[in-house]
């Protein structure tokens, strides 16, 4: 402890004064010193929803008229044919309402409903052939859950329809390379 309390108080006051002056000068001069550029790696800009991108469109005229998010998209081999497997989660409504909405959307897009196998809805149109939609409610969710279940769509494969660079981003298209692993 300093022996002379008065001297200590003076030193403290002078130090506080100098620091305050420097701080004011720094703040006043800061606009002249340029602008900082944050990198933004901790809050990436969210890509638009996958089905609103021009990359891999749904069959012409088809829209999904319920709240949803695409989880995965991609081509799989079924009996030697390439088929598009699109997994979508639906939100805020239950499975029956989603089935009704899907049926209305397919009919509006010119598809004809066919007798399904099991729970799957089947629709057909001359240019696409038969397509199916399997609606599954999640188990163990509360009645007011936001996310309620999944729709697995089996569609004809489509080629990449745009050269927009965003189509190369798997997080946007939800077409993930096989080499990408789930985090642990």
């Amino acid at each position: 402890m300093p022996r002379n309390p008065d001297a200590s108080a003076v030193v403290r006051r002078v130090s506080v004064g100098i620091v305050s002056l420097l701080a004011v000068a720094l703040v006043a001069l800061s606009p002249q010193l340029g602008r900082a550029e944050p990198e933004g790696s901790y809050r990436p800009v969210l890509d638009p929803p996958a089905l609103e991108l021009p990359c891999y469109p749904l069959p012409e005229g088809l829209t999904l008229d319920f709240a949803h998010q695409v989880r995965t998209d991609g081509d799989v081999q079924v009996d030697g044919d390439s088929r598009r497997e699109l997994l979508v989660q639906y939100d805020l409504v239950d499975a029956d309402e989603v089935r009704e909405s899907l049926t209305a959307s397919f009919v509006e897009a010119g598809f004809t409903p066919e007798a399904g196998r099991g729970d799957a809805l089947v629709f057909t149109r001359p240019d696409t052939g038969p397509v199916t939609a399997e609606v599954r409610q999640l188990s163990g969710i509360p009645a007011d859950s936001t996310v309620r279940g999944t729709v697995l769509l089996d569609l004809p494969s489509v080629p990449l329809a745009s050269d927009d660079p965003i189509c190369d981003d798997p997080y946007a298209t939800k077409r993930f390379p096989d080499s990408w692993e789930l985090a642990k």
Binding site: H68, W180, A183
Partner: peptide, 25 residues
């Protein structure tokens, strides 16, 4: 409500998903 997007961390993948669901709903 299933697996999150692969290729990212256990922090960023669930966050992106939550933002996507919030936007959809």
């Amino acid at each position: 409500f299933g697996p999150c997007d692969p290729g990212s961390t256990i922090w960023f993948s669930p966050l992106r998903y939550a933002r996507e669901v919030a936007r959809a709903t």
